[in-house]
């Protein structure tokens, strides 16, 4: 079985608005898949379906062959424990410091002794370049720093599947590069499968093994930029023409990193 996550005839509606319309798609194990689509197309909703935070109106979402939308709380938590998630705004807990946020998965989900927690958090703070900010609260951090804390927290329990919701939206190019560098480095170390949601293609194509374009309720999968440019689907053509202008340019940029 080479698909880590499979959508089978997934339909998701809000009232009369159809966000996903009988979507069938597979996410390959060990690969990096990018879901690209305009804003409001249902990218975050797709991630929430994968995490079991929302249920589809019909169809199945299989994680390692198990339908996550029909699990009880206990089983669901078991499946979720293999996920790490970087939410769109970082989703750090406001009332807790950077240190406490990073330590949270360890203090709540493991039985590590205090000094082991401290050792691991200290290590993560170094790795994610957060030393000196331990005692700050999320509201005192810049956007890029919040994302780094979120990434550190998501990776604390060494997940096998990472989900990123617009990891670089709103960040300047330099910080975007920092985040991608951390992504590459940690993926190499931990070997997770990853799903990255993005509202455009150019910034991410060079790190994607597969790109899924989400538009008007359907998902179309591509394996290379050429495939997208040669697509005859009118919606894909429109999305590509709007956002793919700089693909090769930014590939070159990434090489230089």
């Amino acid at each position: 079985m080479n698909a880590v996550i499979t959508f089978v005839d997934v339909v998701k509606r809000f009232g009369s608005q159809v966000v996903l319309d009988k979507v069938n798609v597979e996410f390959s194990r060990g690969k990096t898949t990018v879901i690209a689509g305009g804003s409001g197309q249902g990218k975050s909703v797709s991630l929430k379906l994968i995490l079991g935070l929302m249920q589809p109106d019909s169809g199945q979402i299989l994680v390692d062959g198990v339908d996550i939308s029909r699990l009880g709380r206990k089983k669901l938590n078991q499946v979720r424990s293999q996920f790490g998630v970087l939410f769109q705004g970082g989703a750090l807990l406001d009332s807790m410091t950077v240190w406490e946020n990073v330590a949270l998965p360890l203090t709540e989900r493991t039985t590590f002794a205090r000094d082991e927690v401290e050792r691991r958090v200290a290590q993560a703070l170094v790795q994610f370049d957060l030393v000196g900010h331990e005692l700050k609260f999320p509201a005192q951090l810049s956007g890029g720093m919040q994302k780094r804390v979120g990434l550190a927290r998501a990776l604390m329990l060494q997940p096998s599947i990472m989900l990123f919701d617009e990891p670089t939206t709103g960040l300047d190019p330099q910080i975007t590069m920092d985040i991608y560098r951390l992504f590459f480095k940690t993926q190499k170390e931990l070997g997770y499968s990853s799903i990255i949601v993005s509202h455009d293609i150019p910034k991410v194509f060079n790190l994607a093994d597969e790109v899924i374009i989400l538009s008007n309720g359907s998902m179309l999968k591509f394996y290379s930029p050429e495939d997208i440019q040669h697509s005859t689907d009118p919606e894909v053509m429109e999305f590509a023409s709007k956002t793919m202008g700089q693909v090769y340019h930014s590939s070159v940029e990434m090489m230089a990193v």
């Binding site: 929430k48 995490l51 935070l53 938590n77 979720r80 424990s81 996920f83 998630v85 939410f87 769109q88 705004g89 989703a91 750090l92 807990l93 406001d94 949270l104 998965p105 709540e108 989900r109």
Partner: peptide, 24 residues
Amino acid sequence: ELGIMRHSEQFDALECMAIDPFRY
């Protein structure tokens, strides 16, 4: 506070970490 936490996906994050937001 709770409304802002909801919008900034903090409850989703807690659930994904299998932490019960009620207890916590």
